[in-house]
């Protein structure tokens, strides 16, 4: 098991694996996401209370879900960076932070667009919305801190500590709707119970969440490959790879 773990730390090995995985991730992601969104927007029944405007859930929930889950993955990678000093973990954090930022922004934006017709306001300072805004700033902070430090190793450590400090925010986002009075409704998907919507609504929602995960996987592989090439540009295998005509 440890051998596999150390192999995973080798950028060259990961580069090859990523190249093999990426077509599958991209195809699966697009397929699931298109299926989920078309089903959700065109064929799922409308809601008894909100009518058609609830359909933004098929975009809002996947982005919000991923925004949090990407941060958790970054936190795991940060622990690996701090404890095992694995280069690849730092490459991951650096590559996916901008993706997380965009996903968080999208979830806040779609949430605001949804909030206007249903609640009657674009924004309200309730615990869920505010903690999600803090997540946006955390992603921004991670990117900025990484850019601010020139030395690769000290940047990796500083960023890891920041990511770990920020991970406290994730359970706050998750449980904000239960711990405090908020305008935002509680989660529709729960880990332990059945979703509080019929199957013809939650199946397309689940498809689009899964599709978003695969698409994120593809994007993460792509960005990590670029970062690996950049960092390993002086090594033999990168030179061979580029000279082989793919660059």
């Amino acid at each position: 098991m440890w051998q596999f773990f150390h192999k995973l730390g080798s950028p060259k090995w990961f580069f090859g694996i990523a190249a093999r995985l990426m077509p599958w991730l991209l195809a699966g992601g697009i397929l699931l996401l298109v299926a989920g969104i078309v089903w959700g927007l065109a064929f799922a029944p409308k809601d008894y209370l909100q009518g058609n405007s609830y359909r933004i859930i098929f975009i809002h929930v996947p982005t919000a879900f991923l925004a949090q889950s990407v941060y958790v993955m970054m936190a795991v990678a940060a622990v690996v960076t701090l404890v095992w000093r694995m280069k690849l973990a730092d490459v991951f954090v650096k590559s996916v932070a901008p993706v997380g930022l965009v996903l968080t922004f999208l979830s806040l934006f779609t949430g605001a667009v949804w909030g206007k017709p249903t609640w009657g306001t674009w924004w309200v300072w309730d615990a869920r919305l505010t903690s999600m805004l803090i997540l946006l700033f955390l992603y921004g902070g991670v990117i900025a801190l990484d850019r601010a430090i020139n030395d690769e190793k000290s940047a990796a450590r500083a960023v890891s500590v920041l990511v770990l400090v920020g991970v406290v925010n994730i359970p706050i986002i998750q449980y904000s709707v239960e711990w405090w009075n908020t305008l935002h409704q509680p989660s529709t998907f729960k880990l332990t119970e059945k979703p509080s919507m019929p199957a013809e609504m939650w199946v397309p929602l689940l498809l689009s969440v899964l599709g978003m995960y695969l698409l994120f996987g593809w994007l993460a592989c792509l960005r990590m490959q670029t970062e690996i090439l950049l960092r390993e540009q002086r090594t033999r295998w990168v030179k061979d790879y580029v000279l082989a005509g793919r660059g």
């Binding site: 509680p186 529709t188 919507m197």
Partner: peptide, 11 residues
């Protein structure tokens, strides 16, 4: 402001 719950269902 209107508050709605997490339950969705067809009309």
């Amino acid at each position: 402001l209107a508050k709605h719950d997490e339950n969705y269902m067809p009309p």
